[in-house]
């Protein structure tokens, strides 16, 4: 049995953060094929899933969750020493006068250096993702963009902006959740987990059949052993949209993927996604995405 103690501290810290509702952190990864490394990989993947899906106030409207863009600014000199910063996350010692590269993982150090080189050549900032080492051995993935202050001066400083989007339980910030009157959807037609399971099967069926127009609701209803009314109302309760609209959206999304990732003719893509004529396809596409299908080809 591989000794887990070597990395136990990072794993425990990660679990504690996640338990507190903070899914922004990651445990630094290696290429070792050990049980411990597998647990670490799975914890990181779990944190990624929770980051988008977590709602600790389940049953209370999502408007009480706070979503904010957290930004940290660094002003660096040409040797990447930190002159000023607003970064305050878990650092073991004050950051001023330390080198910026010291708070990045080795891979991120290389990426940052490349980013600055590109900045010199193209005079534009690009966004890239960097992993910042925080105290307690965890990393924080942050989006990074860089600006050169005072172009012409060879000693000009660099402005580095690191940011990420955080969705937080307001209780973590010590703020009480704002009580608001919010119309809660009452489920009228869906009565049991069996019902929900059935509607999930219907949703899978719809997504499987995006290459032709949908058969009538009556036929779908009888295929799944329910009456047409329940199908219509129940689907709308669960998925917030009608069966037909959902089917149409799935077809159009798939068409978009085909447009972006293949060189098929647009008329062929229209056919593949169940549209009888191109005009109808183009109109529906434009209605859904705001631009005609040919626009995505031009943008390539």
């Amino acid at each position: 049995m591989v000794n887990i103690d070597a990395q136990a501290e990072e794993i425990k810290n990660m679990i504690l953060r996640m338990g507190a509702g903070n899914f922004s952190y990651r445990i630094p990864r290696t290429a070792d094929n050990t049980e411990t490394e597998t647990i670490i990989a799975l914890l990181n993947m779990l944190a990624q899933e929770f980051e988008v899906a977590y709602n600790p106030l389940f049953g209370i409207p999502p408007t009480t969750m706070i979503t904010r863009i957290q930004q940290y600014i660094f002003i660096l000199d040409r040797q990447y020493d930190i002159l000023q910063t607003t970064f305050n996350v878990d650092t073991d010692s004050p950051l001023e006068k330390q080198n910026f590269l010291n708070i990045l993982t080795p891979t991120s150090q290389e990426e940052f250096k490349t980013l600055v080189k590109t900045l010199k050549k193209k005079d534009k900032t690009l966004n890239t993702q960097l992993e910042v080492l925080t105290g307690r051995k965890l990393v924080l993935p942050l989006n990074c963009s860089v600006v050169q202050l005072e172009d012409s001066d060879p000693a000009s400083k660099l402005l580095v902006m690191l940011s990420h989007i955080q969705t937080l339980n307001p209780l973590l910030l010590g703020k009480p959740p704002v009580k608001r009157e919010y119309p809660m959807l009452k489920l009228k037609v869906i009565k049991s987990s069996q019902d929900i399971k059935k509607f999930r099967e219907i949703e899978v069926y719809i997504r499987k059949h995006i290459n032709k127009p949908l058969v009538s609701l009556k036929d779908i209803a009888s295929a799944f052993n329910m009456n047409e009314f329940k199908l219509k109302k129940g689907f709308k309760e669960l998925y917030q949209t009608s069966v037909f609209k959902y089917h149409m959206q799935s077809r159009l999304t798939h068409a978009l993927q085909l447009i972006i990732s293949t060189t098929d003719r647009l008329s062929a893509i229209a056919q593949k996604t169940g549209f009888k004529n191109y005009v109808h396809f183009a109109q529906s596409f434009k209605k859904e995405f705001g631009v005609p299908p040919s626009q995505h080809r031009k943008q390539k």
């Binding site: 070792d32 490394e37 597998t38 647990i39 990989a41 799975l42 779990l46 997504r207």
Partner: peptide, 15 residues
């Protein structure tokens, strides 16, 4: 080991 663990997680969401 590692690949198996990650793939199983990925397949959890698969239809």
């Amino acid at each position: 080991g590692l690949t198996e663990g990650m793939l199983k997680f990925y397949l959890l969401h698969r239809e």
